[in-house]
Structure formats: structure tokens, C-alpha cells
Design a protein around this nucleic acid. Structure first.
Length: 574
RNA sequence: UGGGCAGUCGCCAAGCGGUAAGGCAGCGGGUUUUGGUCCCGCCAUCCGGGGGUUCGAAUCCUCCCUGCCCAGCCA
């Protein structure tokens, strides 16, 4: 019966078939609202406060809100929650705009600021006063705290709670006019000082601040609080589903209370989900700011930072971040996501799109003894085996080359199929070579490997069907260019940075090897002219991105992430 | 200890009374001019615990345990 209504796997449309429909509790709510006719379309919003740089946790929220709007053919607003001028700055609004755009989302004409609503918000406040639902309170900060009570003890009514409507109006207007010093008075909602929910104990909805605001300048002497502003802003924008993080669950009754008192056009539904926690990093604005100000990292866009700016500079593709957001899902349980999943998404995207190039991290000289002196040739090299339309390029080959020092072993361990004395390997795109001689200095360090090559193996294969197990990347000594490679690793040494050992701070967990700058690397000549932001796969090493500091005469690449390395795993086990 | 929320595989996460999806990680194998990619296989008789309701429970009831959030004139 019901089963016949359910589409079987085979009846999925092509579109659904390529990507399994994601489902989560928020989509269930929306589906229900659409089906019941409560809404005919949806409007969501991403509402950052411009007081810091966006990070991957915000990316989850951005992907959620804009993704919902996209999938349900609704819209998503970008709204700055700029109600606290002391913490905010245009520097942050500019970076947020750029970050959301970089992530691939478009708010079209729907860019808003809570400060756009200051006049309306003020009118609504007078309305509340007229309705006897708000009052001006003269309690000081300390007194207010005392009157609020505690988690287990109910609060006490403010002695100013029963001021007359006219007195309240007069006082509130004079607050607005700047007649009173900061902290001397506040406007409070008149709700219930005995509520078990502290947010309902006559919360402050307006406070006096004489701070310059980045958008309204010195127009205002009073500023509305978040709880008062957010719900009204949502209603004014006709938001249908106001999605926020779990810590606001306790605020929902207040959100609803305020809208219930006012003649607003609609009453959006607040829905809370669990914020993202990523292993081996921190997400709190305070800590991120501290990392920057104490120079533990080099700025907000340091490639080790979980900020959008940092990930962009590191070379993470926006598509990968969106994919990551989709894969982690949305739920109400607090969680700690493995960074492996993020890197999986990055590799998946880059494997498809990044052009292959060759570079040597730690060069070891290799001479092909039977290769003609001064001879050189150009070999064909495909740009991406996953994508034939990426074409190919020419790479120069000659008698003297550099290979990866790690690719040679004089006494190879079991299972080794790279270069070792007497062993034949393939130089990618070039020839088969066999090691005949190892040259060392007085100290016994290997300084040069001498090999012979098989001229019949040009291109990297022979007609006799001979198999070689190892394939090495290399660069031509005469044609390669020096490059700087910056290798990044996890910023912290512990997965869960929310639980530190007693007496330790997060600084004790900073990974000393999170950045390794390697200036003596060599790369194929085609890497001489790349533009910052370009991404490549350096064969057998990892994915790299041209850094903003890169100059044509001194190229710099950031390692986005290494390739999976099953040999490293195997050799570690032995 | 007042209130709110949450507990399904190492990490995420579907599931909404009909007998545990999927992804990542891991393990084993195959293909391969990247020890990359790709492909195949394995990976929860069990859903925080105890009772109960039911022919049947991860899903309903009940008690308990654990974790997270709240006492900013921050958001």
C-alpha cells in the first residue's frame, strides 16, 4: 500500500540518481511546512556579526542556509547583525562579503544590516512601552546581576518595574537623546523574574553606548540587544526559517515572546542545529584572534588557520568545502568531525581538477652514464590522467637529473620498489633506468646516483612487456627552476582542543611542525609562471597552490595536502 | 542541584512501530607509467542502561546514567 507510493531506487530521476537526496531534520520541517501550506516558499538568512573573520564553522552555516534556499528555490539573505558597535568594524564586513562570495554563494540584492532597522526597532520599543511590556530600569550592572537571581533561585522584580508609561517614554527618549551616561539605565522587557529560563527574567533590550558605529556613525546613543533585534529583523525580512546554533535554544522563548507582542508582518520559526567542531583546530573567535595577535600564526589568512581566508590561501577549493558541509550533515547532537573527511573532500576535488606537475622536495643528483653528453630532448607528459581534455605538455630531459632523496635506498626494506642498487625503475614519462653506482662524500653521505638507461624505453614503456614496479618523479638539472615549498600540518597536536590537561593552555598544544618551509626544492620549468591561487598536483607528493607571496623569479607554493600514501603506512607497520 | 537540549559502528549520520542507509577512517584483494586515482569485498544480531507496552521497539511509556548550553547593558 504505502510501499507503492514510495519511489523505488530505479525510478529516481537522473539528477537524484547522481547525488543521493540529503535529508536532515531541518529539511523535514521545511517539507512539512510546504506541504501543510504554512509557507509557499522559504526564506533563510546568514546573519554574521562583523566582529571577526569567518571560519569553517560559519561555512557550515552558510552552506546550510544558502543550500536550503537553492534546493527549495527560495532565497537566502546575508544580514550583518551589527548591534554592538564596540566590537565591529568595516574590515570585517568586507572580509565576510568576500568570503561568502568565494564560497560560491550569491545573496543577489538581499544584503541587509540590522542597523538598517534601528529606526523601526526604536519605534517597536516605544510600542512595547506603550503596551506596558517594557520599562526603563535604573539598576546598575551589579545590581542587575543581583536581582536576576541564579540558576536555582528566582530573581526579584526591579524597583523601577512599575514606572508609569509616560515616565518610561520620557526616560527612554532621553536615553536616546544621550542625556544619560553608559550603564546608568537600560530598557528592559517586562516578562517574568521567576522564570526558570534566565533569558525571560526581564531581559535588557536596549543599552546606552556612546560608541561610533561603523555604519550609523554617531546617530545613536542607544543600541538594541541581539535578542530584541534578531527576531524583529527576521520578521521584517519575511524570513520563514531562522536557523541558528544550539546555544540559542534557551533564547527561543524570548524570540517568540517579542514577536508575539509586536505588530510584525510574520513570525519566523527559529531552528537550532549543532555547530561544527573540527578535530585538531579551534573555532572560537577569541582563540583565533589570540593566535593572530600573539603571532603564533601569520595573520588571519595563515594557511594553517581554519578561517575561510586561511583555507583559501592554503588552496582548499570552495567546492571541497561545500562538499564537506554536505557530507557532515546537520543534526542537534554535539560532534567532533575528523579532519580526514575534509581532506578527503579536498583530494576528491583536486584529483579531478588539478594539473599534474613534477617537483622534487629534497633533490638527489642522478647521472645517466650512457646518455649522450649535452644531448637533451622533450618528452610528452599528460596534464591530468583523470581528464583527457586537460591535454599534455612538454618536459625537458637530459643526462643530469634530480630525483627525490627518499626514492633511493642503498639497503632497501622489504617491499621497496623504488630505486636501489641494481634495481630498474621508471622515470615518469621518460625512461627505465637502473642504478649502477652510488657516489658518497668523505662523511659517507650519498651525493650522487649513477644509472644507465634503456633507450628503447622512451616515454616510459618497452615493447618486450617488461614490468617495472617503481615510477619516480624527477626534474632535469639543466632545466629545472628553484622553488620554495611550504608544507603545512595540523595547527594543534590534540584532536579535541576543548579538553586540555589541567594547567595547560591551548598554546601548549601548538604543533611545532605545523609549518615547514623548504627553500631548496626544484620544479619543472612550466611552474615558473603561475598565478597565485593556481592549484597543482605535484606528482607523488601532494597538492600545491601558488601562494600570494609568490613572484615569477621566486615561486612559492603551499602544500594543500599530501597524497594518500599507502607505502608510508606499510613501512610504518613493519 | 532550576531550565533547555542531546546520546545509533573509531568519526559523522539516516532511521519517525515491521525487524540497523550512506560517507570518512580501517582491513583484505584487483587494475594502474603517480605505492595517487579507480574497482571489488569485509567492517553495528545491535541503537547510553534498566524496566514496561506490543505479535513485533532504535523508534511508544517509565525510571536512571552521561554529555553540552544558560546567571553579558556580547552575539
Amino acid at each position: 500500500m504505502e510501499t507503492k507510493d514510495k519511489p523505488s531506487e530505479k525510478t529516481l530521476t537522473a539528477e537524484e540518481g547522481t547525488k543521493p537526496a540529503v535529508t536532515n531534520f531541518i529539511r523535514s520541517i521545511i517539507d512539512r511546512d510546504l506541504e501543510s501550506g504554512k509557507h509557499s516558499g522559504i526564506v533563510t538568512r546568514f546573519p554574521p556579526e562583523p566582529n571577526g573573520y569567518l571560519h569553517i564553522g560559519h561555512a557550515k552555516s552558510i552552506c546550510l542556509n544558502f543550500g536550503l534556499a537553492r534546493d527549495y528555490k527560495g532565497r537566502c539573505h546575508l544580514r550583518f547583525d551589527d548591534t554592538n558597535p564596540v566590537k565591529e568594524d568595516v574590515e570585517y564586513v568586507d572580509s565576510i562579503l568576500a568570503d561568502v562570495r568565494w564560497l560560491g554563494f550569491d545573496w543577489a540584492e538581499h544584503l541587509y544590516y540590522a542597523s538598517d532597522y534601528f529606526d523601526k526597532l526604536y519605534e517597536f520599543a516605544e510600542y512595547l512601552i506603550n503596551e506596558g511590556k517594557a520599562f526603563v530600569c535604573d539598576l546598575s550592572l551589579d545590581e542587575l546581576r543581583e536581582y536576576r537571581g541564579t540558576l536555582t533561585v528566582p530573581g526579584k522584580n526591579s524597583p523601577y518595574r512599575n514606572r508609569s508609561r509616560d515616565e518610561n517614554l520620557d526616560l527612554f527618549r532621553r536615553m536616546k537623546a544621550g542625556e544619560f551616561p553608559e550603564g546608568s539605565r537600560s530598557l528592559r522587557a517586562k516578562i517574568d523574574m521567576a522564570s526558570p529560563n534566565l533569558n525571560m527574567r526581564d531581559p535588557v533590550i536596549y543599552r546606552i553606548k556612546k560608541t561610533h558605529h561603523h555604519r550609523t556613525g554617531s546617530d545613536w546613543q542607544i543600541y538594541p540587544m541581539y535578542d530584541y533585534t534578531h527576531c524583529i529583523s527576521d520578521a521584517l525580512e519575511r524570513i520563514t526559517h531562522s536557523i541558528c546554533t544550539l546555544e540559542f535554544e534557551d533564547h527561543r522563548p524570548l524570540y517568540d515572546w517579542i514577536l508575539d507582542q509586536l505588530p510584525v508582518p510574520c513570525h519566523p520559526q527559529q531552528i537550532e542545529f549543532a555547530r561544527l567542531n573540527l578535530a585538531y583546530t579551534v573555532m572560537s573567535k577569541r582563540l583565533l584572534l589570540e593566535l593572530v595577535t600573539t603571532n603564533l600564526v601569520n595573520g588571519w589568512d595563515d594557511p594553517r588557520m581554519p578561517t575561510i581566508a586561511g583555507m583559501r590561501r592554503r588552496g582548499f577549493p570552495p567546492e571541497a568545502i561545500r562538499e564537506f558541509a554536505d557530507r557532515i550533515g546537520v543534526a542537534k547532537a554535539n560532534s567532533m568531525v575528523d579532519d580526514e573527511l575534509l581532506f578527503f573532500c579536498i583530494r576528491e576535488e583536486l584529483n579531478r581538477t588539478a594539473l599534474r606537475r613534477m617537483a622534487v622536495l629534497s633533490p638527489l643528483k642522478l647521472v645517466i652514464t650512457n646518455y649522450p653528453e649535452d644531448h637533451e630532448e622533450e618528452l610528452d607528459a599528460e596534464n591530468n590522467p583523470e581528464n583527457a581534455s586537460a591535454g599534455s605538455r612538454k618536459i625537458s630531459f637530459g643526462k643530469e637529473l634530480f630525483i627525490e632523496a627518499e626514492d633511493f635506498s642503498e639497503n632497501p626494506p622489504k617491499g621497496w620498489f623504488r630505486l636501489s642498487p641494481g634495481q630498474e625503475v621508471r622515470l615518469k614519462h621518460a625512461y627505465y633506468i637502473t642504478c649502477n653506482e652510488v657516489v658518497k662524500d668523505e662523511a659517507g653521505n650519498i651525493t650522487e646516483i649513477r644509472c644507465s638507461y634503456d633507450p628503447a624505453s622512451r616515454g616510459g614503456w618497452t615493447e618486450d612487456g617488461r614490468k617495472v614496479k617503481g615510477t619516480l618523479h624527477w626534474v632535469s638539472a639543466r632545466h629545472c627552476i628553484p622553488v620554495e615549498l611550504r608544507l603545512y600540518d595540523r595547527l594543534f597536536t590534540q584532536a579535541d582542543m576543548s579538553e586540555l590537561e589541567p594547567g595547560k593552555t591551548y598554546k601548549d598544544y601548538v604543533n611545532p611542525a605545523s609549518l615547514e618551509i623548504n627553500k631548496r626544492c626544484l620544479a619543472e620549468s612550466s611552474l615558473a609562471n603561475t598565478t597565485p591561487g593556481e592549484r597543482f598536483q605535484f606528482l607523488r607528493i601532494g597538492y600545491f597552490c601558488t601562494d600570494y607571496d609568490s613572484k615569477p623569479d621566486s615561486p612559492i607554493f603551499n602544500r594543500i595536502t599530501s597524497l594518500r600514501d599507502s607505502w608510508a603506512k606499510l613501512s610504518k607497520k613493519q
